[in-house]
Simulated assay, not measured.
Amino acid sequence: MATEETESTAAKKGEAAPKGKLHAFAGNSYDDYYDSAMSDFPWTARVLMNIVVYACYAFTKIVWPWKIENAELLVNDKRGRVIISNHESMVDPVLLVVTCWRAGIHLRIVYKSEFDKVAIARWLFSRVGGFPVNRGATDMKAVRRARAALQRGECLLIYPEGTRVKNDADAQVHGGYALMAQLAKAPVQPIAMVGARFLKFRSRIVVRAGEPIEWSELQSKKRKEQVAEMERRGMDEVYAIREELRRAYPELKE
């Protein structure tokens, strides 16, 4: 009866009902992975994640030596958060996912739905906790998934620039992440990196984590105004951290 009530309530809200533990080898849809807690993923997916994480950690450390400054701000905070960053290369999310997974933090990548056109990319993203968002419109299904994940204590990794940026002048910031955070009453954590735009063998990458931005810190009082303020402040702090890194590591300035 309790399960039926949960499913009925979720259906009325247009949300997916809790799935419980997923099957190890078959019987799970992509939506099952998108809507389930990462702690409920089958052991096969967790084994895959461990293999991917430690292989990527070893490979990236050797090929592109990298470090995360103020890492304690990222790994010691166990709350569900929306983590935002500038986007320089496909290596960017790997570094953050690897760091968080090794610290016991479940980090889900919110990726653009265009990647789902590549079957292997969709399969892999789903198994490591990612879910797609349609950037062409307000994707309420993705927003609801984000809220549920944050309320479970999972973190979301979002790149508001939407795509890799090779020139600062070309950056276009997309909204949406603040609404996801607001609905779950979750903080937004800015992070920035330098050195990843034009990767060469043994080129260094430096990442720096910033302090999470709490909703109570905002000056705006109305919900829509708070979202707009968080959208502005979040990326302003990302770019401020990036500029600090460029000053500290001028040799990595692209």
Rank of each mutant, 00 (worst) to 15 (best):
residue 85 S to M: 11
residue 106 H to N: 14
residue 127 R to V: 02
residue 63 V to Q: 03
residue 117 K to F: 11
residue 89 S to C: 10
residue 129 G to D: 02
residue 48 L to I: 08
residue 55 A to M: 12
residue 106 H to K: 14
residue 85 S to L: 05
residue 57 Y to P: 00
residue 87 H to W: 05
residue 37 A to T: 08
residue 26 A to S: 14
residue 74 L to K: 01
residue 61 K to R: 15
residue 18 P to T: 09
residue 21 K to G: 07
residue 15 E to V: 08
residue 115 F to Y: 12
residue 7 E to C: 11
residue 92 D to G: 06
residue 6 T to S: 11
residue 117 K to N: 14
residue 87 H to S: 04
residue 80 G to C: 04
residue 134 N to Y: 09
residue 57 Y to M: 01
residue 111 Y to S: 05
residue 69 E to W: 05
residue 94 V to H: 04
residue 125 F to L: 12
residue 123 W to T: 10
residue 8 S to R: 13
residue 90 M to E: 12
residue 116 D to N: 13
residue 114 E to T: 15
residue 38 M to R: 10
residue 139 D to W: 08
residue 16 A to N: 03
residue 45 A to R: 02
residue 84 I to D: 01
residue 119 A to R: 15
residue 110 V to F: 04
residue 113 S to W: 02
residue 14 G to F: 10
residue 85 S to D: 04
residue 63 V to G: 00
residue 68 I to A: 02
residue 36 S to H: 01
residue 117 K to I: 06
residue 112 K to G: 04
residue 92 D to L: 07
residue 143 V to A: 11
residue 138 T to K: 13
residue 58 A to H: 11
residue 117 K to P: 02
residue 135 R to E: 07
residue 121 A to C: 12
residue 115 F to D: 01
residue 6 T to L: 13
residue 22 L to C: 03
residue 23 H to T: 08
residue 53 V to I: 15
residue 134 N to A: 14
residue 122 R to H: 09
residue 135 R to D: 10
residue 127 R to M: 11
residue 62 I to E: 03
residue 120 I to D: 09
residue 9 T to D: 10
residue 65 P to R: 06
residue 84 I to Q: 00
residue 40 D to F: 07
residue 22 L to V: 03
residue 45 A to M: 08
residue 127 R to S: 03
residue 83 I to D: 00
residue 139 D to Y: 09
residue 122 R to G: 06
residue 80 G to I: 01
residue 19 K to S: 06
residue 59 F to E: 04
residue 91 V to M: 05
residue 63 V to I: 15
residue 123 W to F: 13
residue 125 F to W: 04
residue 68 I to V: 15
residue 84 I to M: 07
residue 109 I to P: 01
residue 35 D to W: 01
residue 115 F to W: 13
residue 65 P to C: 08
residue 70 N to H: 12
residue 53 V to N: 03
residue 90 M to K: 12
residue 23 H to K: 14
residue 37 A to S: 13
residue 59 F to Q: 05
residue 33 Y to G: 00
residue 21 K to Q: 13
residue 100 C to K: 05
residue 89 S to D: 08
residue 60 T to V: 07
residue 78 K to F: 07
residue 43 W to F: 15
residue 49 M to Y: 10
residue 113 S to C: 09
residue 111 Y to A: 08
residue 48 L to S: 07
residue 74 L to F: 09
residue 104 G to H: 12
residue 121 A to S: 10
residue 134 N to P: 05
residue 21 K to S: 10
residue 73 L to H: 07
residue 46 R to F: 14
residue 34 Y to A: 02
residue 13 K to W: 11
residue 83 I to C: 05
residue 85 S to C: 15
residue 47 V to T: 15
residue 123 W to M: 07
residue 35 D to V: 02
residue 9 T to S: 09
residue 58 A to V: 13
residue 82 V to R: 00
residue 30 Y to K: 08
residue 112 K to L: 12
residue 22 L to I: 03
residue 15 E to F: 03
residue 22 L to W: 02
residue 34 Y to H: 09
residue 29 S to E: 09
residue 55 A to S: 15
residue 47 V to S: 14
residue 49 M to N: 13
residue 119 A to G: 11
residue 96 L to G: 00
residue 131 F to E: 02
residue 97 V to N: 00
residue 60 T to F: 03
residue 133 V to N: 00
residue 33 Y to V: 01
residue 13 K to H: 10
residue 93 P to Q: 11
residue 14 G to P: 04
residue 13 K to E: 08
residue 115 F to M: 14
residue 23 H to L: 12
residue 124 L to S: 05
residue 115 F to S: 03
residue 68 I to Q: 00
residue 15 E to A: 11
residue 49 M to A: 14
residue 73 L to A: 08
residue 73 L to D: 00
residue 128 V to N: 00
residue 140 M to W: 13
